[in-house]
Amino acid sequence: MSGDGQGNDHWFDDEAGPVVRPYAMTRGRTSHAVQHRLDLIALVVAEPDADDPEADHSLSPEHLTIVGLCHDSPQSVAELAAELDLPVGVVRVLVGDLVDERLVHVNRPVPPAELVDENILRDVINGLRAL
Score class of each variant (00 low, 15 high):
E114K: 10
G127H: 06
V116D: 08
D97R: 11
I125K: 04
D100G: 10
L64Y: 01
A78S: 14
T65W: 11
H57M: 06
S73W: 05
A113P: 01
I66W: 01
D85C: 12
V116E: 05
S73A: 10
R122E: 08
D97M: 02
L86W: 14
E62A: 14
A130S: 13
D72A: 13
P61E: 01
V95L: 00
H63V: 08
D97A: 02
V116Q: 06
V91S: 08
R122F: 07
L128Q: 01
R129H: 07
S76N: 00
D97F: 06
L59M: 11
V95K: 00
H71K: 10
E79Y: 07
H57S: 10
V77D: 02
V99N: 01
L128P: 00
D72I: 11
R122L: 04
I66Y: 01
I66R: 03
C70T: 12
L94Y: 04
A78K: 10
A78F: 13
Q75R: 15
V93G: 04
R102H: 14
L121Y: 11
T65M: 06
D85T: 12
H57G: 09
L84R: 09
A55F: 08
E114Y: 13
G89P: 14
E114D: 10
L84H: 04
P111Y: 07
G68V: 03
V91A: 04
D72S: 13
L103Q: 02
L128I: 10
V91D: 02
H71C: 06
Q75P: 11
R122H: 04
D56R: 12
L59V: 06
S73D: 04
E118L: 15
H63S: 02
D85K: 14
A130N: 11
S76L: 03
V110D: 00
L59I: 02
D85S: 15
V88C: 13
N126V: 12
E83D: 08
L115H: 11
H105N: 00
N119S: 13
H57T: 14
G96W: 07
D85N: 15
R92W: 01
P61W: 06
G68D: 03
I120N: 01
N126E: 09
I125Q: 00
S76K: 03
